[in-house]
Simulated scan of single mutants.
Amino acid sequence: MSFDAAALPPLREALEAHGLMARKSFGQHFLLDLNVTRKIARLAGPFNGETVIEVGPGPGGLTRALLETDAGRVVVIEKDGRFIPLLQEVADAAAGRLQIVEGDALEADEAALAGSAGHVVSNLPYNVGTPLLIKWLTGPWRPRSMTLMFQKEVADRIAARPGSSGYGRLGVIAQAVCEARVVMDLPARAFTPPPKVASAVVRLDPRPDGPAPALVASLEKVTAAAFGQRRKMLRSSLKAVGGEALCEQAGIDPTARAEEIDVAGFLRLAAVRRG
């Protein structure tokens, strides 16, 4: 699966040749350092010949690094049509291994693009990162692995532990479905243009004994109630979904607050609520 990124123009030259700049409305911040994108690709692999989906490739810095790996195919989903001609130049050098999809990743059918054996690796646009993660955690298509870049605050929330300030609904759902860990921090200066915040890469690997979709749906409702009123005791915040009786059936202290309950505890609450 040979791909020679050096055969292509440097990313900055390619952007200048096409007259392209990042758009704030799309939450775009480009990674142009191939040393950084290659490290992300290494952290995401191995792919064992399977398909990798990348959302928001922009000029294709991470795309080039992914094509250097053992991925069978790379599918990029890009909403900003300005980048399609530039990405096509990468595709022309990729011997059929790069598929370009112009559209909104929130509406994409990943199963049709990657089949059941797909991975997701992306420097996610800041404005859609969390909705996309929730889609992949709770939707009908579950990737084999996800290696995703977020604002550092969001990355820390995904991997947060009970009792910490960042622990909340996102972390509970992510950790119920996957093993989640922060694998790389990136300062703002690594990007063009630099964002106002630092970023971090999170690796998520589905748990082999993870919850069934129906339990995840119940977990979404329980965590929405619990963390929607996180300062209240669970007997109050969970009133709409069962309150004190729900807590007692799940073996949870009804006077506890949401941030004190671990992922296993929330899964018990979700299971009891589902009945």
Rank of each mutant, 00 (worst) to 15 (best):
V55E: 01
I252P: 05
V90Q: 00
F150L: 11
G58A: 04
R73E: 13
A212K: 09
G49H: 10
M149R: 07
G251F: 06
G228K: 08
I261F: 10
N48S: 14
V177D: 08
A44N: 11
P143H: 09
N123P: 03
E102P: 00
R42A: 10
F227M: 13
G210Y: 04
A258E: 09
A256C: 13
P211T: 07
K239L: 14
Q28T: 04
L269I: 09
L31K: 09
A114S: 14
K135W: 02
A155H: 11
P195G: 07
L133I: 08
V128N: 11
A224C: 04
R64F: 00
T138C: 14
R23N: 08
G166Y: 00
G115W: 04
G96Y: 08
L215H: 11
D156G: 07
R157K: 13
A224T: 14
A5E: 14
E259V: 02
V101Q: 10
R268A: 08
E13F: 02
V36Y: 02
M233T: 14
I53Y: 04
L8D: 03
V101S: 03
R142V: 13
V182A: 12
N35L: 09
A190N: 09
R38C: 05
Q151K: 08
A91G: 05
L137D: 01
R73A: 11
I173E: 04
A41T: 08
E89K: 15
P206V: 14
I252T: 09
D4E: 12
A160W: 06
P131Q: 11
E16M: 00
A155F: 03
L87I: 03
D70V: 02
E244V: 06
L186G: 13
P140M: 11
P125E: 04
T69R: 13
A174V: 07
Y167T: 08
G58E: 11
E179V: 13
A91V: 06
G103M: 03
R203M: 06
V75C: 10
N48V: 00
G243K: 01
F47T: 12
M1P: 07
L133A: 12
A105N: 06
T51H: 14
R161P: 01
P140E: 15
F191V: 06
A200H: 10
E260G: 00
A117H: 13
K196H: 08
P125M: 00
R64E: 01
K196C: 03
V154H: 06
D33N: 12
A240D: 14
L113N: 03
D33H: 08
R161V: 12
A198D: 15
I158G: 11
A198Y: 10
L8R: 11
